[in-house]
Amino acid sequence: MINISQSILVITLLSVLLSLGSTRLTSLVKIMALQGVMVSLTPLFLKDHGSFGSGAIIFFQIMILIKGLLIPGLLYMAVKRIAIKRDIEPFIGYHASILSGLAIILVSVFITNSLRLTLPAGHDIVLITAITTMASGFFLMMARSKAITQVIGYLMLENGIYLIGTALTKHSHTLYVVEFGVLLDLLVGVMIMGIILHNINSAFDDVDTTLLGRLKD
């Protein structure tokens, strides 16, 4: 009765909306963990992705591990250890963010319909989710002031790209290898960010990126 892949995608979309409306960094990180798991599960449940070899199974397990556990875990540690003020401090308010999220979904629906790609059945909602996730990632980077939310926005962008890959391909996991490389880069990025944030935090009082703007002189 309820299509599993669709439910996963709907949960992904919801996580996007929630992340735009969340006021606390810790809850934002938790939402990202959920989103990571959901996004990496998506290809497994799409109908025509067919059978998976043992390599693929291991591949997807690592994917879930990194997206759902490792990166969010590191982010969580960064939030906790560096004792960042837990409020998110938006440039664009929460109400406006939620409404923008809805608008982004709407636009994605229209883009997907107007692209007229010949997608496999059931893949158009993947594409909608992908575009929404990407755009919301950008939005999050744009609309929030903390460095860590920018990383989270980047993570969301990456999730979106991963989904686009999923939507446009019908083949096995080999196509995700590039994607995997990006993910590893991202992981490194998160780690570096943690270290840098730690240093910034010990050097300055705050990790607000608006303050970084003053460094230009």
Partner: peptide, 21 residues
Amino acid sequence: KFILTSFALVFFAAILTMGVL
């Protein structure tokens, strides 16, 4: 924000009826 979240949920569901789901 709380009430707006409830609106976002329903609006989202309504969008999903647009020939997608």
